[in-house]
Design a protein around this nucleic acid. Structure first.
Lengths: 193, 193
DNA sequence: GAATTACCGAGACTGGTGGTCTCGTCAAGC
DNA sequence: GCTTGACGAGACCACCAGTCTCGGTAATTC
């Protein structure tokens, strides 16, 4: 009986790292340029100078490639501020989140990705996991503030988290109003009033 | 020369009203049952016992049919409360909005419609117009409250409107937390605190 | 009642999509 | 040099929005 963890050493040609990078670069580029319009697998493969099969050999679906392109190549750092002041922590989170939502190429790429996720249940689930860590960061800040007594005991943390991200996604996806520093300040103020 | 406004009286076979209703009924039904999954024109036409051309004769696109199905057959009444109290007006709006978001078949149909709109720019624009009146209702309530002095002068009405609907759509589309009466109460309280 | 007009259901067709399959080729290890 | 498995290329399938054409049919006019 073989060792189940390493039944056999790898033989044959190895994965082409250059192709992997070319695919992710092309995907991010197209995702950003599309800004909402759909991005086809054909187009990604062609732009990367790669066969479609190479793409499907390493990713299970188009959505997985797109998400990977966004997270690997344009991963925004999630700040976890801990200044000792709830108001300041939350303000920093809002500013960082809103600023990330202006940056190219990740911002238009994320917008496209969310639109793709509306039709792709698999991608929607991946995206849900991706965003969960951001939600957790806001929750941590709020609960630390509550322990310090900066948040009234009757305030609902889940409600505040959803107000924070609901507002953000609403403006980010509709684009009808700015997500600038002023908006971040006023949102923070409104939530903690 | 003929009258340019009415160049010729209508002759020939008239539009089949039964077919129109069958299409809208079928579309709403499918929209509600899909609950997120895409709805194809083929399927609608087949379910309505109608040729595809009949559908495209009267509507410019699939999205137009879907939106028509939702607005014509499941139009929710937009309440315009004016109780004299900002807190009570806003609470009533929230309760009515959240309750409408639980009702079948319009709620799952709306969810599907929004997902379709993510890929259909034409439908997205129609939907934007459709939702604008709801936003206006919230804005009116807030500004009436401000005139009565129930809203501090430094509060940003646009921010509050986006907080209201951002929260709503976020929970409605993600479905991770309830949109019940308690949530409506707590949101109102949080916004006016 | 005959001619005209325009809607009807049905379904073929186009162009584009995500995803699968197969081909001959090429690189890595034995 | 042989085996293994990744590679680019592209044929292929199923599905979809939207167009086009067909023979049939209902409403109106003469």
């Amino acid at each position: 009986m073989h060792d189940s963890k390493e039944p056999r050493p790898h033989t044959g040609r190895r994965r082409n790292e250059a192709a992997r990078l070319a695919i992710l670069d092309a995907a991010l580029e197209l995702l950003a340029d599309a800004d909402g319009a759909p991005v086809s697998v054909e187009t990604i493969a062609r732009a990367a100078g790669v066969g479609k099969q190479t793409l499907y050999r390493w990713w299970p679906s188009k959505g997985a490639v797109l998400l990977d392109a966004l997270t690997d190549r344009a991963a925004q750092d999630v700040p976890a501020p801990d200044t000792g002041s709830l108001r300041e922590d939350l303000r920093q989170l809002a500013v960082a989140t809103f600023e990330a939502a202006q940056r190219r190429p990740s911002a238009p790429a994320l917008r496209t990705l969310v639109r793709e996720a509306a039709r792709d249940a698999h991608l929607a689930e991946l995206l849900r996991v991706f965003t969960e860590s951001r939600r957790a960061a806001v929750r941590v800040v709020l609960e630390r503030g509550r322990e310090r007594g900066e948040l009234a005991a009757d305030r609902d943390v889940d409600l505040l988290v959803d107000q924070f991200y609901g507002f953000f996604w609403y403006r980010f996806l509709l684009g009808h109003a700015p997500l600038d520093r002023s908006a971040a300040d006023r949102l923070t103020e409104s939530l903690l009033r």
